[in-house]
Each structure stands twice: as C-alpha cells, then as structure tokens.
C-alpha cells in the first residue's frame, strides 16, 4: 500500500523492467545471429541448387567453377578438407593429450602456471602468420626431406594447423582431467599404482567424455580453419588422399572466390554459400556432440 503510493518507487520499478528488457534483448541477439547465419546460408544455397542438382553437388568428383562448362561436385573440396584435417589431428591429438596429462598429473603447480599461458599464446598468434610459416618455412624444410613435395601441398599446412590446435585440445583435456576428484586418484595410488598407471587407467577413463569433447572441438577447428590452407595448400580442387599434392579446402575455396570480388547473384557467388553450408553442417554436428559430451561430464561430478 505504502509502496505503490510513492511515485519514486513506481518509477524505479519501471526502470528496472526496462533495463531487464534491454539486457534480455542483448542476450537474444545471439539467437538472432544464429538464425541469420542459417537463413542466409540456406537462402543463397537454395538459389544455387536451382541451377545445380543436389545429387551432382554431393556425388560429383570435379569442382571447376571457372571453366566454360562449370561442374560443381563438392567431393574434391570435402576431400581436401578432410585430408588436411586428418594430418592436423594426427599432430594435435596425441601431443595435446600428453601435454594435458603432464600438466594435470605430473607438473608441479608452478610449472603449470607458467606453461599454460605460454601455450595459450600459441593459439593467439594470427592464423595468417601461421600461413606464412607453413608456406615459407615448413614447406622448404620438408622439401629437403621429401624431394617430390610440391611447393603447395596438404602436408605442411596440416602440420602447422595441428600445432595451432594443440593449445585448444590440451587446455580442454586438462580442464576435464582436473575435474576428476582427488579421492579417485588417491584410491589408485593407495593400491601402489604409479602416476602413469593412475593417469591412463583411472583419470583418463573418468574424464573420457570431456576428452572426447576436446577432440571433437579440435577437429571442428581444423575443418573450419581458413588462412593456413588458403596460403599454403594451393588453390587446386584435387580429389586425392596424397598429402604431397596441392589441394583446396572448402574454406580456401570461399576465400579464393571472395578475393576476386564476385558480382552479387551470380552462380559463382552462390557457390561459396553452398560450400559454406557444407562446412557449417560439418562443424555444427561436431560442436553439438562435443557440447553434449561436455555437459555430461559436468553432471557426473
């Protein structure tokens, strides 16, 4: 009774509501972003599929949008993406996991406090600098060992990308391993197990879903990475699993077309959205599974 009579309180109440509304709108902006991504990608891709049949797109084995008689088969680009991703994973997953085990189970806290931020700096280096490194440092170096390596190839950007992803993988793996309660480790030590045995037979299985999530998110990073491959893998759609040859990834194709300022509404313009949809769907699936796994670990402990 007394409160509602006071105009000042009344005004404060309205102000509170307005502020809450504004904050909600800001939070909802993220939903708006996602919806626009989906809408724009699919809108332009549907325009593309009016001219190119979906079956030709998915099963076609040659991607030659610039030819007089263009063909749009996405397989060479998907293949290039997977090839580079597999190389990156072969580098980053084992190294990332070993680093995570070392930092979480072996290293003294002081070492960890220094090592973690420095490793994270690796993730902060701009990708275009990594691209420079892949093309002008690693490729010439590898060419001395493998003489028939072409100057644009899948191997060198794959390795560099793997190094780039190590901090993501190790940091997420370490977080999930540290979430394993201490008493589980102590139980293992009490039976006389070494740190090595505890780490690999007790901690890693307990943190499994978190580690799996880290792997999936690492893979999705590799699939979506653009500049390293655009610089060092060459711009040649190539249906091959030979890492010594030049390839083109989905992301590199989008960059390649964008550099040449394509006119709005042409088939070529729409083709980058078709490639984008393919990329988006691939990473989305990995991210969602990763998210669900990460949430599961939070529920266990």
């Amino acid at each position: 009774m007394f409160r509602s009579m006071n105009p000042k309180t009344e005004r404060t109440k309205i102000k509170e509501k307005v502020i809450e509304g504004a904050l909600l709108l800001s939070a909802l902006s993220s939903v708006f972003i996602t919806l626009s991504i989906v809408f724009i990608l699919f809108y332009e891709a549907i325009g593309f599929f009016k001219y190119v049949s979906l079956i030709e797109f998915i099963t076609g084995t040659s991607w030659t949008p610039l030819f007089a008689k263009p063909t749009y088969g996405i397989l060479p680009l998907v293949c290039g993406t997977l090839l580079v991703t597999v190389i990156a994973i072969i580098v980053s997953l084992p190294v990332g996991l070993v680093v995570a085990v070392f930092l979480s189970e072996y290293a003294p806290p002081k070492v960890r406090d220094v090592a973690k931020p420095i490793l994270e700096l690796l993730a902060a280096v701009p990708t275009v600098v990594y691209g420079y490194f892949a093309l002008l440092f690693l490729t010439p170096l590898l060419q001395r060992i493998i003489p028939n390596l072409s100057s644009f190839n899948a191997l060198s950007p794959g390795i560099i990308m793997g190094i780039m992803i190590i901090p993501y993988v190790s940091s997420m793996c370490e977080d999930s391993m540290r979430a394993v309660p201490m008493h589980i480790r102590e139980g293992s030590y009490a039976t006389g197990a070494t740190k090595f045995q505890t780490a690999f037979k007790v901690v890693i299985p307990s943190a499994f879903s978190g580690i799996a999530a880290a792997f999936l998110i690492g893979i999705s990073r590799a699939i979506g990475e653009t500049m390293v491959v655009a610089i060092a893998a060459g711009m040649m759609p190539n249906l091959t699993f030979n890492p010594l040859e030049p390839v083109q990834t989905l992301t590199a194709y989008i960059v390649g077309v964008s550099i040449g300022d394509v006119p709005h509404g042409t088939l070529e313009y729409r083709s980058i959205f078709a490639a984008g949809v393919t990329l988006f769907v691939m990473t989305l699936i990995l991210n969602i599974v990763g998210f669900l796994l990460k949430r599961r670990i939070r529920e266990v402990y």
Partner: peptide, 20 residues
C-alpha cells in the same frame, strides 16, 4: 546457442556478413 556460436568457423561469419 552461445556455446555453438563460439565454435562456428570464422569464415561462416564472413558469409553471414556478406549476405546480411
């Protein structure tokens, strides 16, 4: 949605911006 957005490749944002 937020944690999904953090995982969307940056080039997809480029395509979004190109269209939008």
């Amino acid at each position: 949605n937020m944690s999904n957005l953090a995982g969307v490749p940056s080039i997809i944002y480029g395509l979004l911006a190109l269209g939008l």
